[in-house]
Amino acid sequence: MDLRIFTEPQQGATYDDLLRVARATEDLGFDAFFRSDHYLAMNVEGMPGPTDAWLTLAGLARETSRIRLGTLVTSATFRLPGPLAISVAQVDQMSGGRVELGLGAGWFEAEHAAYGIPFPPLRERFDRLEESLEIITGLWGTPAGRRFDHRGKHFALSDSPALPKPEQQPRPPIIIGGAGKKRTPALAARFADEFNVAFAPVDTATEQIGRVRAACATAGRRPETMTFSAALVLCCGRTDAELARRAEAIGREVDELRENGAAGTPGEVVEKIQRYREAGVGRIYLQTLDLSDLDHLAVVAADVMPHLG
């Protein structure tokens, strides 16, 4: 079971805060450091303000050496697909081939309004996401010396040299997630290396994984070529007092976290993760909200990770 650290920097974090967490992630043996791609805090002031996901990952690419780096997930509304393909390929080169691209349609209307980003209706956002996936994979997959063209409803590329190429070949892994019952599984079957179910109960995750497996079969793809993952908020403590302190620090209740997250004693966290493993999940993103508490990660590394194989 891969354990990955997943952060929400829009809630209030500087680059230096993220660097400390990323270095702890690497030193403690976790598989990856991921971050959200948001520009507006949710239910908090979010000082000192947002950091850009791909600028952050570019910096971390040069200041780490082992861990995977990526987004969960980049909003397709934030960046044109051609420039995004360039940015991700460059960060992949800078990291020595450790980048993964999580890409979604975008959902948080308020942050689009706050920073002047167009926010089309849901159907159009999914259309744009599909075209973005076509363009990004098309640019990365075009052989060196060849040109790439795309004529779509929302984007047109003409005579592109399709450069630069990412370090990873044939391309960096692509992650798609969501709860949609039809279009989301179909897009995952077509484009994704990994499908993520975020903050969902085990039975809901099981149902959505089943839909993605069925979509793979319909598309002529072997379902076992897809990695399935889940994201869960982390709150782990060796004692009741430690657990309560960590829950209070993120503004949550212990009982609610035990029900909905990877929360409780280390043994309880192991048990919860094992339930997702039985549902077909092979990777867990631990949403880490208090970025000042590096001891939290140390507890998981010492008392949870060794029991998951």
Rank of each mutant, 00 (worst) to 15 (best):
Y285G: 08
R238G: 12
A244G: 08
D293T: 11
E224C: 01
L243C: 12
T218S: 14
A231E: 13
L286E: 10
E259Q: 15
V299E: 03
D295H: 13
R277Q: 14
I250S: 04
L232H: 11
E271F: 02
A247N: 05
R245D: 14
L289G: 09
M226Q: 02
D293L: 12
N260I: 08
C236R: 02
E248Q: 14
R258T: 06
G282T: 14
E268Q: 15
R245E: 15
G261R: 06
F228H: 00
V299M: 12
A249E: 11
I250N: 05
L234V: 07
T265M: 03
R245M: 04
L232M: 12
G237E: 09
Q274W: 04
G237P: 11
I284V: 15
L286K: 06
L291A: 02
A263E: 05
M226S: 00
E224V: 07
G267L: 01
E268S: 04
R275D: 12
G282L: 05
D293A: 09
Q274C: 00
D295Q: 13
H296I: 05
A230S: 14
R252N: 06
A241S: 15
P266T: 03
A298F: 07
E278F: 04
D240S: 08
A262E: 10
A241T: 13
L297E: 10
V304P: 11
L232K: 13
A231Q: 13
R275G: 00
G220N: 11
Q274K: 15
R258P: 09
D303I: 00
A231R: 14
A302T: 12
E278M: 07
A219C: 07
A249D: 13
F228W: 11
R221Y: 05
A244P: 06
G261N: 08
E253C: 00
D303E: 15
R252S: 12
G280N: 08
G280I: 04
